[in-house]
Design a binder for these strands. Structure first.
Lengths: 297, 297
DNA sequence: GGCCATGCATAGGATGTGCCTATGGAATTG
DNA sequence: CAATTCCATAGGCACATCCTATGCATGGCC
């Protein structure tokens, strides 16, 4: 069953004549006759009754006709609408993000993307950095949001912004009333920190180590939200990205956020794509939306 | 854009590799590579980024993928479901009937056919005999209901039954109280008759001529219903097919139906199909349904 | 009834297309 | 740096499509 055979079949059914169908299709009559016969063999039954004066559909032909029309229409549509499908971002688009960014950046970015590209089937994956990098390299993801450092031959890294850290302390803590706080002031305070399986946990540990800041870690969590909860209970102070502080909403009982005095520790927000791939329309907008979410968020 | 090219494209998109796609499709790698390139030229844009290690969809490829899948699925469905489509009577089925039979036979027959072949797209045409015959001969109609005589080389005539005529007289007419009436009793009575453009009109005129029955035609109508109305007004008597009498429902004020005494004039009910065509499943059932409607109606 | 026109099927040959094996070139891997 | 992997290209073969020419059946016409 070939497309041109279906086209010939439809033409013959509509004209009721092999000869006129051949004219319409711009081929010789024997060619069309042959192809119709071949189609009949391929479906295993006659499609036309040969009447001597033209042809008429059999039951099988009557049944095939609407399907043949549908197939040909789909092919025509595919050709005609391919360009606008590209504009509309048609197709599956798979994004990933690390857990310490996903809840703060993805909802807004994905929502914006869905309205901009209503026909894109966007799927989301939340995972640790190295697994995201591997997924992008393997083509399982089209885009991922993570933080430097990323090093993979096949992965292209684009920095879309950076983000300062803030300090969060329990309400009533001696530091709670201050406008801002120096990193050194945190020395030896009981600290709630993020597990170092997260790149953010490693980054914060790195900042502290760089400042030779001894820490008294009283708890390690795997989620920022858990850490914030423990801070509210007075178990210690913590350092979190500002997007987490903003997402925490209106001033909450139990914990107070403080800016760093002077240059704050920062992390970069980067968008990962597979190296060597042509820039994707949806992917480019995704990166922009992540940047907006970061700046406005 | 050919079906096998689309199949190759989908395989390459799903495996992310020309080589593995070729394995899956059972062709050599260069063949698949070539066909993908041909498809790319035919749609006017690259569908894959060649990464050295496999391939990845471009925006255009992403957009084409769902359409290609849809087209291939339709083709698979067409092959798989063609047989059951034939059983279900899938496709357009066009029937015709003459005006003096259509309202009494078609509704019941078509309704039955619609439940039996829910996927058949049945269309109905009401027209005079010779036009129906021509339409069947030209393949514009798959089936038609008419009455003998039909004579056309390309039209096959099947008699599904016959139907007696009855007499209808105004209420209060001298004949109204009789159980039955002889044809001769109608001699010279004022008569309302059907226009001879209808075969029924010609048939009735033929009966009367055969019995040498002079008639005093006071009115000629083009519809049986009109004739019945005029009879109720007392303008004359008329001869109508029994199906019309039955359809007239419960005893109506104004007119009374009488059987003929002895052998009644009759007309045949025939189903017309195009000669040389294989018997159609729906067509065969249609003829049966007409027969049923005639017997039960 | 014989003649011509019409329409589908078949035959045979030219062209084109798909597929193959072999090979080249680029990137990746050990 | 060698070996491997993978896609692209080249050349040849087989088959499929298309063409023209022709056969055969049907329908229409004088």
């Amino acid at each position: 069953m070939e497309l041109h055979q279906l086209a010939y079949f439809v033409a013959a059914a509509e004209t009721g004549s092999i000869t006129r169908a051949a004219e319409r299709c711009g081929v010789a009559q024997p060619s069309l006759s042959q192809q119709v016969q071949r189609l009949e063999r391929s479906v295993g039954g006659r499609l036309f009754d040969r009447l001597g004066r033209g042809v008429a559909l059999t039951d099988a032909g009557r049944a095939l006709l609407p399907r043949a029309r549908a197939i040909l229409a789909e092919v025509r549509d595919a050709r005609a609408h391919l360009h606008e499908d590209v504009e509309a971002g048609e197709g599956e688009f798979r994004v990933g993000a690390i857990p310490t960014m996903a809840p703060f950046l993805l909802p807004r970015a994905v929502a914006a993307l869905r309205t901009e590209f209503p026909r894109a089937a966007i799927t989301v994956r939340e995972d640790l950095t190295d697994r995201l990098v591997q997924a992008v390299a393997d083509g399982e993801l089209d885009c991922a949001v993570a933080s430097s450092p990323i090093d993979h031959e096949r992965v292209e890294v684009r920095t879309v912004g950076e983000e300062p850290m803030v300090v969060v302390v329990p309400a009533g803590h001696p530091l709670a009333g201050a406008d801002d706080v120096a990193l050194a002031a945190l020395r030896d305070l009981p600290t709630v920190t993020l597990h170092e399986m997260h790149c953010l946990g490693r980054q914060i540990a790195g900042f502290c180590a760089a400042k030779r800041l001894g820490r008294s870690v009283v708890c390690r969590t795997t989620q920022i939200g858990t850490a914030l909860g423990l801070v509210s209970l007075g178990m210690g102070v913590s350092i979190v990205p500002r997007m987490a502080a903003r997402a925490d909403g209106a001033p909450r009982a139990g914990r107070v956020y403080l800016e760093f005095r002077g240059p704050a520790p920062r992390r970069e927000v980067t968008v990962l794509t597979r190296a060597g791939r042509a820039p994707s329309r949806v992917g480019l907008r995704f990166a922009e939306r992540i940047r907006e979410a970061l700046e406005e968020g």
